[in-house]
Design a protein around this nucleic acid. Structure first.
Length: 470
RNA sequence: GGCGACGUAGCCAAGGGGUCAAAGGCGGAGGUCUGCAAAAUCUCUAUUCGAGGGUUCAAAUCCCUCCGUCGCCUCCA
């Protein structure tokens, strides 16, 4: 049984899906007006791994992640650059796919864009107006009446009257209640527009997710995920909208990941303390970044700074070296037969992830197996080595989306340049070994240092001298 | 102001009434291996879990107080 923390009930609950062995999951994606940063990447990686885990234990996962491709920030950005909104959106959707791919995030089954669903959104709003959950103001805005649904505020633990007294809510005389939120924004001059029964305008933010998730995953899917900053008002409003439309909340469970903190604040584009995914991958490697993101429980906020990223990067490199050591001997390792030890490690790994997706514990199992793989190779126990290799590379690595490349940062390209370099290095190694044979260690060490300065590390093994670039 | 989370070794981070003299990673010390290194491996590196009270046969784990950090309440993943 898999247990997850449900934001709505604030408790750890068993995952019981609508259809047996199928998990339908919707994860809120970014508004595309710039490159994605590490904060955007956390839910992407977390839910990517969660999905792989569910698949491993036998679920068929149907996953959707949206792009908000029309919004004030996109329009502002477009105006600033003197291009149209769609160019901005298209550009950063493309860049987002690029960065997601760099991070080894599998594409979801659906990546809906708001502007592809305007017709459905209009229909949904019309229905809410008909059923008296929403109203149109004289200027052509449409608003949702928050007080028409019961339990509004349950997800975020807020009480309507406390919110009102907070007086932080948008003061807008057109709204009947200050807490009402916009479903359709009437167009200001020069803004992109779509036609609607109540005038030219564009969809508000919350309605897109309700409409797209319902259309793609159905009235009540299993898991709705996203960053915890979306709990209020975004997800609260989605619940209200779905209840107005279908009489049901949109999802059975709500999973929220904690924020990435940088320099004392939440990482956010508007706070200018972002660290781009692209830069992080360049600096720490794909597996280093993923390992970092999985090193802390997904619900806790995590501080972003170099030291732990460096640690994760080193740990990833160590595992890569171990795997490389194995594949050097066995180019095409086949499938081992499971034994008690393998079952035991795998069970521990799965149990960790089954307990509210405890990735830090799962990683501890992984690192234990890495040590066992090294030991098996040290002992010359190839059969056991294959078993450990299989667990790391094909089972754990597969679920975590790591160790699927040759090495993390160092490329072992079969290019002509590499061939030349290889010949050169091998030549120097041979010279050094001749010096060693003649016990001229000073000369031998000189050559080793020379290579070391060029970031080439020599490793003397019983099978001869090897080298690696670092 | 309201709601919520957290404070565990040099750093990162699990655990969440007894099996914890507390997993794992990074770092550090020492051993094995090596001509020496490197890599790998082994041992050690928190008698203690922010501070102070309390409950209990038993607490890092439950309760209270205090100190500190952070999130949400506004666009945000």
């Amino acid at each position: 049984m898999i247990y997850i923390s449900d934001t709505l009930t604030k408790s750890k609950v068993p995952l019981e899906t609508g259809q047996p062995n199928v998990v339908k999951m919707y994860v809120c994606g970014p508004t595309v007006y710039n490159y994605i940063h590490i904060g955007n990447a956390r839910p992407m990686v977390v839910f990517d791994v969660f999905r792989r885990f569910l698949e491993f234990v036998g679920y068929k996962v149907v996953m959707a992640q949206n792009f908000t491709d029309i919004d004030d920030k996109i329009i502002n950005q477009a105006n600033e650059w003197g291009v149209d909104w769609k160019t901005v959106a298209d550009t950063f959707i493309a860049e987002c796919y690029h960065d997601a791919q760099l991070l080894g995030i599998r594409t979801a089954n659906f990546h809906p864009r708001t502007t592809d669903f305007v017709e459905d959104i209009i229909n949904a709003i019309a229905k809410m107006i008909d059923n008296d959950f929403a109203y149109v103001t004289p200027n052509g805005d449409a608003y949702f009446s928050v007080r028409k649904v019961n339990d509004y505020g349950r997800l975020s633990g807020k009480k309507l009257d406390e919110l009102r007294s907070g007086a932080r809510v948008d003061v807008n005389e057109l709204k009947i209640d200050p807490l009402d939120f916009v479903l359709w924004k009437s167009a200001k001059p020069g803004e992109p527009v779509w036609n609607s029964p109540w005038g030219k305008g564009r969809p508000g933010w919350h309605i897109e997710c309700s409409v797209m998730s319902q259309k793609l995953l159905g009235d009540m899917f299993d898991i709705h995920g996203g960053g915890e900053d979306l709990i209020f008002p975004h997800h609260e409003d989605e619940i209200a909208q779905s209840k107005a439309l279908t009489g049901k909340p949109p999802a059975r469970y709500w999973m929220h990941n904690g924020m990435i903190i940088a320099r004392g604040d939440k990482m956010s584009k508007s706070l200018r303390n972002t660290f781009m995914v692209r830069e992080a991958v360049r600096k720490f490697g794909k597996d280093g970044v993923r390992l970092f993101l999985l090193s802390k429980h997904y619900r806790s906020p995590m501080e972003f700074f170099d030291a732990p990223l460096d640690d994760s990067s080193k740990a990833a490199a160590r595992v890569h070296a171990t795997l490389y050591r194995f594949t050097e001997k066995y180019n095409y390792p086949l499938v081992p037969k499971y034994d008690e030890e393998m079952n035991d490690y795998q069970t521990r790994f799965i149990e960790a992830l089954s307990d509210d997706f405890n990735t830090p514990v799962a990683l501890s199992v992984l690192f234990n197996v890495v040590r066992e793989l090294n030991k098996a190779m040290d002992d010359g126990n190839d059969e056991r080595a294959l078993k450990m290799y299989h667990l790391i590379k094909r089972v754990f690595g597969n679920m975590l989306g790591i160790f699927d490349g040759e090495t993390d940062k160092v490329q072992r390209v079969e290019s002509e340049e590499m061939q030349t370099l290889d010949t050169l290095i091998r030549g120097i190694i041979e010279m050094r070994n001749n010096f060693r044979k003649e016990k001229q260690y000073e000369m031998a060490d000189k050559l080793r240092n020379l290579l070391g300065e060029s970031k080439i590390r020599l490793v003397d093994t019983p099978e001869g001298t090897k080298y690696e670039l670092y």
